[in-house]
């Protein structure tokens, strides 16, 4: 087996040993029960309410789970000198990077597919397929950001906070941009121009995560495969950028 795939397989095995699959199963089942309970008290549109609550919660949980696993896994490699052991072998550093990345991406895809099983109770397979494909893209970006942040910060708390800050900001940036152009905001004021420029600069380096994984795709008709095209495009572009940043950082580290 090529060393890249060996590292990826060990990363997946680490997820298995950490009981992540158990945790995922327990959370999916319990959130299903909670959404049933809340859906029962809805006066109308009970199915839509259940699917929206379940989808919203599971999306957030899956991001939390993947980000936490990525950061803890890489920090453990630092602390247990696993990274040094692998780098002492006759492989380029990129082998370790891509091995870990493939392992994390496989976990992200597995998490998204597990969540899909729960959602099939409330939406059609077609709606769930599009929603889950988008969630996969979202988790791919989050796990790659997690890898970059952990290489940069080395510490679990700061790396995890950075990943979550990135995620929240990327989800909010569309609304923040719109607020800057609100009719209630005085135009032409220098302070406002500076704020708008800063927001545009931040938006430039962030992915459009606010377009990803919309609950309305599960609740209402009208979603199409074409909706996934910009999401897949943004994921591909951002993945290349993050791989470039991650490799650049890893090669410059004096380990």
């Amino acid at each position: 087996m090529p060393p890249v795939l060996t590292i990826a397989a060990f990363t997946m095995r680490e997820a298995q040993r950490n009981r992540i699959l158990w945790l995922l199963g327990i959370v999916v089942v319990s959130s299903f029960g909670l959404s049933e309970l809340v859906g029962e008290v809805a006066i109308t549109e009970a199915s839509e309410t259940k699917s929206a609550l379940l989808a919203g919660f599971l999306r957030f949980f899956s991001v939390f789970l993947v980000a936490l696993f990525v950061t803890t896994s890489v920090v453990r490699d630092f602390n247990d000198k696993v990274l040094e052991s692998i780098l002492s072998l006759p492989f380029p550093r990129s082998v370790y990077y891509f091995g870990k990345l493939i392992g994390f991406l496989a976990l992200a895809i597995f998490v998204a597919l597990t969540i899909a099983a729960g959602l099939l109770l409330y939406a059609t397979p077609f709606q769930v397929a599009i929603w889950v494909a988008s969630l996969m893209c979202e988790l791919i970006i989050v796990s790659t950001v997690g890898l970059v942040c952990t290489f940069s910060f080395h510490h679990l708390t700061t790396a995890f906070s950075a990943v979550f800050g990135f995620y929240i900001l990327a989800r909010m940036i569309g609304a923040i941009e719109l607020m800057g152009t609100s009719p209630l905001v005085p135009a032409g004021k220098p302070s406002q121009e500076i704020v708008n420029a800063v927001v545009s600069g931040i938006a430039f380096v962030l992915p459009d995560l606010y377009r990803f994984t919309q609950s309305r795709w599960l609740m209402y008709e009208g979603v199409a495969w074409a909706d996934l095209v910009p999401i897949a495009g943004q994921t591909a572009v951002y993945l290349v950028l993050l791989i470039g940043v991650g490799l650049f950082d890893l090669y410059r580290k004096n380990l």
């Binding site: 430039f204 290349v240 950028l241 470039g244 940043v245 490799l247």
Partner: peptide, 10 residues
């Protein structure tokens, strides 16, 4: 890869 990624994102 870094330069291509940055240009593509822009």
């Amino acid at each position: 890869i870094l330069i291509v990624g940055l240009c593509a994102q822009g």
